[in-house]
């Protein structure tokens, strides 16, 4: 085990939690990410390899699959983001690469992103001040990418109307967090 100490996207030693009446904003610093893109002409083989790892089919556009230990969502044409717990899967990219072999391009993405989970009865009231995602129309596993605080974020529905995970570029975590908290203050 190496001797470098990690910090969170908000430059702290532990994840930030903000609680409001009807909403909790929880930073998630415990996720590993790796992106997977199918090689041209080897889409089927890539999908098969990924399915063996995920235990589920690679999700369709706008969708995600939640699983243990691996979850996955669609990012773009023939491209997905796979996630797992960081502690057990720090080298998630190697695991994915092993599963898909030459049929897929895999890229380490763990620290490319920050994640905030928003949960509570007033989620919809806050989210409508942040981005154009139609929360009422979202089912479990739906993933939408849209602008939020001027950033292209992924919004993943974990519980309809109740819980979403928001992924944004890590370097802007402070701005995103500020935006989330301000919106919550503004509504709640």
């Amino acid at each position: 085990m190496h001797s470098l100490k990690s910090i969170t996207a908000l430059a702290a030693s532990s994840a930030q939690v903000d609680s409001f009446d009807g909403l909790t904003i929880q930073e998630r610093a415990d996720c590993a990410f790796a992106s997977l893109a199918a090689r041209r002409g080897e889409e089927a083989q890539c999908a098969a390899g990924a399915q063996a790892l995920l235990g589920a089919e690679l999700p369709a556009p706008g969708k995600g699959v939640l699983g243990e230990p691996y979850s996955c969502f669609w990012m773009g044409a023939d491209q997905w983001m796979i996630s797992a717990g960081y502690a057990a899967h720090e080298t998630l990219d190697s695991e994915v690469k092993e599963a898909v072999g030459a049929a897929g391009s895999v890229t380490e993405q763990s620290d490319g992103w920050c994640r905030f989970d928003l949960e509570g009865a007033r989620l919809g009231d806050v989210l409508e001040r942040l981005c154009n995602v139609d929360l009422l129309a979202m089912q479990v596993g739906d993933v939408s990418r849209s602008r939020l605080e001027h950033m292209a974020c992924f919004i993943w529905c974990l519980e309809p109307g109740q819980k979403v995970a928001i992924y944004a570029p890590r370097s802007s975590a402070g701005s995103l967090h500020h935006g989330l908290v301000e919106a919550a203050h503004s509504v709640l």
């Binding site: 992106s35 893109a37 199918a38 090689r39 041209r40 002409g41 023939d78 491209q79 391009s105 890229t107 380490e108 993405q109 763990s110 620290d111 490319g112 992103w113 570029p169 890590r170 370097s171």
Partner: peptide, 15 residues
């Protein structure tokens, strides 16, 4: 469109 090439930004992922 037929080149086998995949792109993704990793600007943020590495310090």
């Amino acid at each position: 469109p037929d080149m086998d090439v995949q792109l993704i930004s990793t600007t943020e992922a590495w310090a």
